[in-house]
Design a protein around this nucleic acid. Structure first.
Lengths: 211, 211
DNA sequence: CCATTAAATCAACAGCTGTTGAGAAAATTG
DNA sequence: CAATTTTCTCAACAGCTGTTGATTTAATGG
């Protein structure tokens, strides 16, 4: 080897001196969330960010990698889920519902990656895989060794249900869901999710003694 | 007028003599359901139906009209929803859940149009509109003047929830949901949907006396 | 000023897309 | 047979797509 003490002092222009990379990412995030994967073109993203299309390709090497970059969920959104499960079982349903709704319908920089992921999961297999593991891991962490072995199933069902409601509101645009306020929504959702996550003890006669 | 008795006796080849039109529709239905709107190309549909691409354009004048034709839901699927609401309230949840699951996960010629509609609703606005009215009308018909004025909201929520679960199973492919059998799924879903559609009378102490 | 490194622009490519038009083949009637 | 109507085939178009390479500009240090 040659001399090892500070002989390569990094000459030339420094990377990341402009905010272009960030601008591209934000433009892509909005496009993917609002228009979906297929309808989002490199040229459109580039135009939104006031940049040449080939610039997008230089930073993110392909459309798929750009999409993957958008999929990187802000940790803030994830943290809300972790804290939602701490505490008593009594209002677990409501806490989970609130955590979900605030994550999906909150500030743009929080909800847009989730929205983009959901839309993308329909058409893009890699997006489906990420959403899959996202749903799997989050709610599971909360319900682990809570009731029994089907805790995972109940977590998955609750998660899918809530994603379904969000989809109905945000993507499909079901009028009734849009008309309802968030609190009104929670009033109906919370007991149902509670029912799924913490199944009620048998109210009436349970057919368990025989067979 | 001229002579009205059989003076234009329709000469030439009769329309609809081949099953091509039907073959195209079925191929398109499968493609739209499995690959989504964007990934479904006229040429692919044509190849599936062993037909030239321009033939698809002759029967259905554009890709959008072909999609609209696929969206025409078989009346069979719709009828199941109407009958699901007749009967007592006690097991309304379970009946609705069964109706939904059988419609979305049943035979291909029944579930594929629904699947195509769901996938399409994410990217295609006209598909979203149809799915919207579909969700609105069906469950509403069953819960009309059942509890109170928010019956529509409860119906919409229940519907979105179930669509969410179906999406989780069929499209996203959440492992936990896939691993569970249909009956196991119903066991968890039914009480929750019941809770949404027919809200339980307060089980424990209800904070209603004061405030 | 020169060298180096990254950012940004420009023009172009091959491929696929929905769509169109001309025409051949098939079916049906006189 | 000829006439007519529909089904089907073939070739091609203009447009958009993701992507690439060459080149220029900007920033930084010797």
């Amino acid at each position: 080897m040659k001399d090892s003490t500070a002989h390569k002092v990094r000459r030339g222009r420094r990377p990341g001196t402009s905010n272009t990379r960030q601008a591209i990412l934000e433009a892509a995030r909005a496009r993917f969330a609002n228009d979906g994967f297929a309808a989002t073109t490199i040229r459109l993203v580039a135009a939104d960010a006031s940049v040449d299309a080939s610039q997008v390709m230089q930073f993110y090497r392909s459309k798929d990698e750009l999409f993957a970059a958008v999929m990187a969920i802000p940790s803030e959104a994830l943290e809300r889920f972790n804290t939602a499960f701490e505490g008593p079982d009594d209002d677990l349903g409501e806490r989970v519902v609130r955590a979900y709704l605030s994550a999906w319908e909150g500030a743009h920089d929080v909800s847009e990656p989730l929205m983009a992921m959901l839309r993308g999961a329909i058409v893009n297999e890699s997006a489906a895989e990420q959403l899959r593991s996202f749903i799997q891991s989050r709610l599971l962490e909360g319900t682990r060794e809570r009731t029994d072995t089907d805790a995972a199933l109940r977590a998955g069902i609750a998660s899918s249900m809530l994603v379904g409601v969000v989809t109905g509101r945000q993507i499909i645009g079901v009028p009734t869901l849009l008309a309802a306020g968030t609190e009104e929504l929670i009033t109906v959702l919370a007991p149902a999710i509670q029912q799924v996550l913490v199944p009620q003890p048998p109210l009436r006669a349970e057919p368990e003694s025989h067979a």
